[in-house]
């Protein structure tokens, strides 16, 4: 069965829906679009979709990825053309291409994600102050965060998973960009970095004040990260 890779964005009101809801949106959107989606066998058939990485609720995604199996061949441009107008507000299909039928799962190739977080500053705060805070954070050998899973608290050192962290201040707008570890070897969440900057880091904001967007996803290439689309 032909497999297609779709690059799409999810922002606006759509960023508030969970990953599970998004899977359901794609099921309905493909049905409205009349795409011949392949379904799994069994008592409870589900569409053959596979996504690169779930987005946290509230975080927008500017370049997200999914694979989709169809029952029959269709021009990639035709898929985009049919699907895009059938997606709810906030979704946009950016690109579609065919990949080998048994192309390895997106999730298995994923290594790094880029984020941009912006917030409005309530008080004066300079770019110099921000960069000092960032430098200080990046110089640490260990940044420990506490995660809770299934009622258990666990300490995790996220420092090795922060590949880059930069920031700027323009007027009242503060912007932080970062590249973080994602995928099968571990995850660093953007809020974890932001709360460290705003807490001990001295940035006069809370992590929930930031509007966060995931701007790109990367795979690990031989000579460093490559955009997931180019794998």
């Amino acid at each position: 069965m032909p497999r297609y890779r779709l690059k799409f964005s999810k922002d606006g009101p759509a960023r508030y829906s969970s990953h599970l809801d998004m899977v359901r949106f794609f099921d309905r959107s493909t049905r409205r679009a009349g795409l011949p989606v392949a379904f799994s066998e069994g008592f409870n058939p589900h569409p053959k979709f596979s996504f690169a990485a779930p987005l946290p609720v509230g975080v927008g995604g500017l370049e997200e990825y999914m694979d989709m199996d169809l029952k029959e061949y269709m021009e990639p441009a035709e898929i985009a053309h049919r699907l895009d107008p059938n997606l709810p507000e906030g979704y946009k299909i950016l690109s579609v291409k065919q990949v080998p039928d048994h192309a390895p799962a997106l999730m298995a190739q994923l290594a790094r994600a880029a984020y941009r977080a912006t917030a409005t500053l309530p008080t004066g705060y300079s770019e110099v102050e921000l960069n000092t805070a960032i430098d200080h954070l990046m110089k640490l050998e260990e940044i420990t965060v506490i995660r809770e899973a299934k009622g258990k608290r666990k300490e995790v050192n996220i420092r090795p998973g922060i590949f880059s962290l930069t920031g700027g201040v323009k007027g009242h707008i503060l912007e932080v960009t970062m590249e973080l570890l994602i995928g099968s070897t571990g995850n660093v969440r953007p809020e974890e970095v932001l709360s460290r900057l705003s807490g001990a880091g001295g940035v006069p904001l809370e992590s929930e004040d930031f509007r966060i967007r995931r701007t790109a996803l990367f795979a690990q290439g031989n000579a460093g990260p490559v955009p997931l689309w180019e794998v």
Partner: peptide, 13 residues
């Protein structure tokens, strides 16, 4: 800050 924010976000098909 709230649970299930899509309850309030609108934008449905």
């Amino acid at each position: 800050r709230v649970q299930k924010p899509s309850r309030y976000a609108g934008g449905e098909w």
